[in-house]
Design a protein around this nucleic acid. Structure first.
Length: 570
RNA sequence: UGACCUGUGGUGUAACUGGCAACACGUCUGACUCUGGAUCAGAAGAGUGCAGGUUCGAGCCCUGCCAGGUCAACCA
């Protein structure tokens, strides 16, 4: 089991105790629930999981890990009109990929439809539930408003027998959708809207992804969730802040159920907000449906599948979750913190490779025509155990266009006419000629190399100010590279009144580069393999890759002090 | 005009039953370097929403304000 409590874990980070941990510790101290800790992650299968869910997953499974308890995966599938099997599968995959295991405890709220139905009948018999056949608008009006109490429905006094009969007929499908509902009889004058005789069953003649056409009535969230917790023996039911006002109702149902000392407890925390993106499933679905992105796993999406495809690692997402903490304050996390988390992980683990994304041809004029040689290159300077590899060198090379300036400013350390730089792991080269086409565009550079500097150092101790990455033209693997930027230009795209969040989509969030050259080492890399393209950033293999055309996604760029200086000037 | 919740450096979190506000990211210096990466060293930056009160002493306790959020789906 991992050690928490402010001790560094094996990834070198510190996992802090949060307020939920504190409360659980107190419950344990008080001897509640026979000192068991059992949590659950309860997604509704109506969309793909996103980074906000990852926070919840890490929290719930993390608690089980910390307290020696268990975590169930439970699908909250009480609304057949929105839920699909596709989502169930993607969610399972994402939770597993994040590194968590629900073992044999995979449940569905729909597992409890029978029990829930029985429980509803019990409430009717106890005089605590009734069928209301007024229309939705009438019921809604009777509910009052947050500042004004509601008043009682005329159906509230129906006899137990009549309620039983009506509910049975609802269940049998004798009534149309919307014609009546089952309500709990609580308190229409409660200051808490959720206690004003909440609807607990509605008629829906929809096909359910698991129970098929068996049911014509489906329980509402409030009537299913706490009960599911109870039947599964959950001790701590952790959910987001908006359910805070539901807690009295959660407790009310548990009161009706409770037979022993065992009792689940709902605790709320603030959901994750990230800037420059949207997090609601509805909006993410809209982006997918309207093709603003290429599916739920588009690398620009904040979905777990999107982040995975983008090149994020489970470790980095778990670390991110630990770093942001858990509180009841709802704030906004800077995406750069997420980015920092991957960079930190990938820096330690990613294979280094050279790749030129915006090629500029370089001819080494004093290098023999048909010669080539292999030079040693370190695979990861952070991890000697990753060893080294050979990189081919020859007369014609590509370097990055940005690494050359015809009229360089003083602070620009890279290549310019007459300047000498180092080609990483290779030689010192000096630029002698700049070749241009008829329009004045630079088409290639003529350089000479210093044979004595083989490997990257000159025996005379000469220093150069820059080291460039490069690729041998005839050995290079041509590939496509997809450069991603934030999906939205605005920090808080859905925070504008009267303006649709889609107005803030970043038109430059995806740039396809088709003329990229990578060193042969990447040949045969598998989907999702990570690399650092030296000096550029971290990249991974996209599933769209083929043998003929490898495709790489840029996960994040490396810190770029030069670019930063330039930005400051503007 | 209700109920519930929240309010600590730019951002996110911390501060055991009250004891001179800590950490991370970011920012800025400098060192080192065959990645202008990474790393290392250092600096700036809040006096804890506001006003009172209790106390030798309050971010932590009390009172009153202010600000923000949530709640009126037969969604979850």
């Amino acid at each position: 089991m991992a050690e928490y409590n402010n001790k560094p874990d094996n990834e070198g980070t510190v996992k802090k105790a949060n307020f939920i941990h504190t409360q659980i510790t107190e419950d344990l101290k008080a001897g509640k629930n026979e000192k068991r800790v059992h949590t659950r992650f309860p997604p509704e299968p109506n969309g793909y999981l996103h980074i906000g869910h990852a926070k919840s997953i890490c929290l719930n499974f993390g608690i089980a890990e910390k307290f020696g308890g268990k975590t169930n995966l439970r699908f909250d599938d009480t609304n057949p009109s929105k839920e699909e099997t596709e989502y169930v599968e993607s969610i399972k995959e994402d939770v597993r990929w994040l590194g968590f295991d629900w073992e044999d405890r995979l449940y569905f709220a729909s597992d409890y439809f029978e029990k829930l139905h029985d429980f509803a009948i019990k409430l009717i018999k106890d005089g605590k539930a009734y069928v209301d056949d007024q229309d939705a608008e009438t019921i809604s009006n009777q509910k009052g408003t947050p500042t004004r109490p509601g008043f009682e429905s005329p159906c509230r006094t129906r006899s137990v027998e009549e309620n039983l009969d009506l509910f049975a007929r609802m269940t049998n499908g004798e009534f149309d959708e919307g014609s009546c509902v089952l309500r709990a009889k609580i308190d229409m004058a409660s200051p808490n809207m959720h206690m004003r005789d909440p609807i607990i069953y509605r008629i829906m003649k929809a096909h359910h992804h698991r129970t098929g056409d068996k049911w014509c009535v489906y329980p509402m969230y409030d009537f299913a969730h706490g009960q599911s917790d109870y039947w599964e023996g959950i001790t701590h039911s952790i959910c987001t802040l908006e359910f805070e006002v539901h807690r009295p109702l959660y407790d009310w149902f548990i009161d009706q159920l409770q037979e022993t000392d065992y009792r689940p407890r709902q605790i709320e925390f603030a959901r994750l907000n990230l800037n420059y993106t949207v997090m609601s499933k509805r909006k993410l679905l809209e982006l997918v449906k309207d093709k603003h992105v290429n599916g739920w796993d588009d690398p620009r999406m904040p979905t777990i599948s999107g982040l995975r495809r983008r090149g994020y690692t489970p470790e980095s997402i778990r670390n991110f979750s630990d770093r942001i903490g858990v509180t009841k304050v709802d704030g906004v996390i800077d995406v750069t913190l997420l980015e920092h988390s991957v960079k930190e992980h990938l820096n330690r683990t990613a294979q280094r490779v050279m790749g030129v994304i915006n090629p500029l041809k370089v001819v080494i004029t004093n290098y023999p025509e048909n010669q080539s040689e292999e030079l040693d290159a370190v695979n990861n300077p952070e991890d000697a155990s990753m060893g080294s590899r050979k990189v081919p060198f020859s007369k014609e090379l590509y370097i990055e266009r940005d690494d050359f300036m015809e009229d360089p400013p003083r602070k620009f350390f890279r290549l310019g006419p007459g300047r000498e730089v180092r080609l990483r792991y290779a030689y010192f080269v000096t630029c002698n000629d700049v070749i241009k086409d008829a329009n004045g565009n630079i088409t290639e550079l003529h350089c000479t190399y210093d044979p004595a500097s083989k490997g990257g150092n000159s025996p005379d101790g000469r220093k150069v100010k820059a080291t460039l990455h490069w690729v041998s033209a005839k050995h290079a693997i041509k590939s496509e590279v997809r450069m991603y930027d934030r999906l939205f230009r605005d920090e808080n795209p859905d925070g504008h009144k009267d303006r649709d969040f889609k107005e803030f989509l970043n038109p430059d969030s995806l740039k396809l580069l088709n003329d990229c050259y990578l060193e042969p080492f990447v040949q045969g890399a598998k989907t999702l393999d990570h690399f650092q393209f030296e000096r550029l950033g971290y990249f991974n293999v996209d599933p769209d890759s083929t043998d003929e055309k490898p495709v790489f996604n840029r996960t994040v760029q490396l810190r770029d002090s030069w670019a930063k200086q330039q930005n400051k000037k503007q």
